[in-house]
């Protein structure tokens, strides 16, 4: 059986390398993007093999799902333009350079990596887990031990959305060449399931793989699907509506939790004794909501309209 597992790993690695090669070298841009999406899919299998279900979940929701939708949508602007007959790659970067340089780098990295004892922090986590307020170690690390990273991480998401808004208006969506009647039905059918699964993942977070990030991503993906199914983007950039507030809610709440620690005379982000569990629950819900909207906002690639509709006539 060990042989079968080894064969599985080898095959997976070979497929990943092949796909990475295709994603960087394929002559056709769409070919490259599909290769990259499949790369993400197989990467999730690799995470599963490496006993990292949390990472697999995030990769499935964010890596393969949301990123795939982003890349495919970006093609709409890029694919329309006529292809220029220029070389796709820089000249002069011949194999003479890359083969030796690549092999040297590879040898160096592998040598270094084999020498790692990888002591890990597993024991430290086990020792502190009971005080963290949650049963699942990854959630404990994200929202308690290293909550500062998570605050900045949600900040990065929010910041990315602000940057994208600052760059200009969202491009109006293209009208499909042949609208299908099945699409709106699909949206109506699936959206409740998206919401349900997102809520389930959020709830799972405290004692198993799940939590705000996959949940938010699934929720956001549901929004993207609704948009594709013909719904109007309901998010508005108007400064009067609630949207800007909800977008920044996750970061604001995390920041408040951090400051609360300082104000009560303790460390930044130190939850009062015994209240860690409820703090983390509130943080998860707020963060999940924000993340969903932020991922949706990232997908729009620009600032949505302030008011009014976004019909095909505009």
């Amino acid at each position: 059986m060990a042989l079968v597992v080894l064969a599985f790993d080898l095959l997976l690695a070979a497929a990943l390398i092949w796909l990475a090669w295709q994603a960087t070298r394929a002559a056709d841009l769409f070919h490259a993007v599909v290769s990259f999406i499949v790369f993400g899919l197989l990467m999730a299998l690799a995470w599963v093999r490496l006993e990292a279900p949390d990472v697999a979940l995030a990769e499935a929701a964010i890596g393969a799902g949301a990123t795939g939708a982003l890349l495919l949508s970006a093609l709409d602007r890029l694919a329309r333009r006529p292809r220029r007959h220029a070389p796709l790659y820089e000249p002069g970067t011949a194999w003479g350079f890359w083969l030796p340089a690549g092999s040297a780098l590879l040898a160096m990295l592998t040598l270094a990596a084999w020498n790692l004892p990888a002591p890990g922090l597993g024991n430290e986590i086990l020792a502190s887990l009971s005080a963290s307020g949650v049963e699942h170690a990854v959630t404990a690390v994200l929202l308690n031990f290293r909550a500062l990273d998570t605050l900045l991480e949600i900040g990065v998401l929010l910041l990315a959305a602000v940057v994208i808004w600052a760059l200009g208006q969202a491009p109006p969506p293209l009208v499909p060449s042949m609208p299908s009647p099945a699409l709106p039905a699909l949206g109506r059918l699936l959206f409740p399931i998206f919401v349900l699964v997102a809520a389930y993942l959020l709830w799972r977070g405290s004692h198993g793989p799940g939590g705000a990030f996959p949940a938010g991503a699934v929720f956001g993906a549901g929004g993207i699907l609704m948009l594709l199914a013909g719904a109007r983007p309901w998010i508005r950039s108007s400064e009067h509506g609630p949207w800007r507030l909800i977008l920044s809610l996750g970061m604001a709440v995390l920041l408040a939790a951090g400051v609360a620690g300082t104000l009560s005379g303790q460390d930044f982000f130190q939850y009062p004794k015994g209240t860690a569990a409820s703090f983390i629950l509130v943080l998860e819900v707020a963060a999940g909501l924000s993340i969903a909207l932020l991922i949706f906002a990232l997908y729009l690639r620009g600032k949505p309209r302030e008011h009014g509709s976004w019909g095909a006539a505009e």
Binding site: A52, D54, T67, G120, L121, A140, L142, D149
Partner: peptide, 26 residues
């Protein structure tokens, strides 16, 4: 995976990294 027992800090790090990556990609 190599650590004994299984170490969850890198998992959290990678989760953070994935979210950052999608932000920069967008």
């Amino acid at each position: 995976r190599l650590a004994e027992p299984l170490d969850d800090v890198p998992h959290a790090i990678v989760l953070t990294g994935i979210v950052i990556t999608i932000s920069t990609t967008a």
